[in-house]
Design a binder for these strands. Structure first.
Lengths: 243, 243
DNA sequence: CGACTCCTTGACAGCGTTCAACAGTAGTGG
DNA sequence: CCACTACTGTTGAACGCTGTCAAGGAGTCG
């Protein structure tokens, strides 16, 4: 289960687009693959690298002492993560599926920052800003939205970040979704079922129910924006069973 | 109620410590006072200034369409806020009590950034980092902690940020606390009462119950770290009523 | 004193959790 | 192919933590 960085990562040099702006055209690059469930770095560890996902998906999370988990972000292809301003990582990162990442040595970013151009530093700032914005949006979702709203927001976020594909292929288990939304897996499942029964989404059948077709993005957005209440969705026997 | 920046802000030049590092020793400074409830800036507005609190307290929050509010952060004396990397503010900031702030014109930070030293840019990065760290810690609290744990965390945070005074004088109403923690005011009140009945905290009596004495920080930290469950605190008739 | 606001407390309801059982899928080996 | 196992996801029933609604207390200001 525990697969740390090993020495056999073949070093090729297709310098990725996103990280190049941060680290320059140097040969500090490595290519590495993590198998499903492998830890990329752990909370409390000293940051040595920054990462950009080439293929796959990664979750960053924190744990409470009793094992409860809060996922802070999902990282999808193209995403950069592992950027830390302090001496330790504030999240643990794990590959959700088999994942290939580009790895850059971290000291190029910060220890040598004085020698680099200000434009690059601005990229760091923008990066931080994006993370911060996402975190703050997530605060609102976690603290103030109801279960079915959270699930709708999640689907729309995945749809947007995956460029609105015909079928949203979730690389996530229900447990991952639940920890992202601050819910239980049963609640996520119930909300998804309610959406399906309403014709808002449908499942592709294969690979568990992880392939979702958003059949009515408009209505999904309405759910996300609190236009419907719990009892209108989860209790089927109000005024809908007759129709 | 709506008190925007007016022209009569007397300009004095006791250049504040924190912002000086960001903006330099220039005369871009102003001093301004906001009365209780006044809006400093609103969500969606174009950022024109950055602020450092001289005295008072400020809340930054977002609203859902139906009026539900999520406070992202409280700003206390010395805190810098209003720093935005994008074109609009992502929060609304209001003075919780009568508040005096230092104001710096924002363009010195970003439009002229090329002329400035890299060390200053680092400060921006550190600033962003602090906000991001706080937001991410708050995600965990909002998504995965129970009501009494949230309230305990809140008290400890205020205690820490106020430098562990003998009496924690909260500049916040119960509504503010509740919106910060993703709870209702009644739940906050019930948790505080439970702490009081257990002898963990006590109130100073005056000024509503906004002056809190932390009589047992150790036990409060245990509550915050999920060492006790709801039923052990909120149901008085288990094994404690006899004693 | 009355009016107002903030806070507390109680009773009840409800949303989400918990516990449990079941279904669907994948992998293994016969 | 099926049997068996393990894992993931769904669904039902009951519970419980928190929200909702309501009343009352306490401080403030007129």
């Amino acid at each position: 289960m525990i697969v740390r960085i090993s020495a056999n990562s073949t070093s090729v040099k297709p310098v990725p687009h996103g990280l190049r702006a941060l680290t320059g055209e140097t040969s500090y690059w490595n290519n590495h693959k993590y198998s499903q469930g492998a830890q990329i770095f752990r909370n409390g560890e000293v940051p040595e690298y920054i990462y950009q996902i080439r293929e796959g998906a990664v979750r960053s999370y924190k744990l409470l002492s009793d094992g409860r988990r809060q996922i802070g972000a999902f990282h999808l292809p193209g995403d950069i993560f592992g950027v830390e301003m302090e001496s330790v990582h504030r999240f643990t990162a794990e590959a959700i599926v088999d994942t290939t990442v580009w790895i850059a040595t971290r000291h190029r970013l910060f220890e040598d920052v004085d020698e680099r151009e200000l434009a690059d530093t601005r990229n760091i700032v923008e990066l931080l800003h994006n993370s911060l914005e996402h975190a703050q949006n997530h605060l609102l979702l976690l603290g103030r939205q109801e279960a079915h709203e959270k699930v709708a927001c999640f689907l729309l976020e995945m749809d947007r970040r995956l460029k609105k594909p015909p079928v949203v292929v979730l690389p996530l288990s229900r447990t991952d979704i639940a920890d992202y939304l601050g819910l239980r897996i049963e609640t996520v499942s119930r909300s998804l079922s309610a959406f399906r029964h309403r014709g808002i989404i449908s499942f592709n059948g294969h690979r568990g129910h992880r392939e979702v077709i958003l059949k009515d993005r408009t209505k999904l957005a309405e759910v996300a924006l609190s236009k419907y209440r719990y009892r209108d969705w989860m209790h089927p026997c109000r005024q809908h069973c007759s129709g």
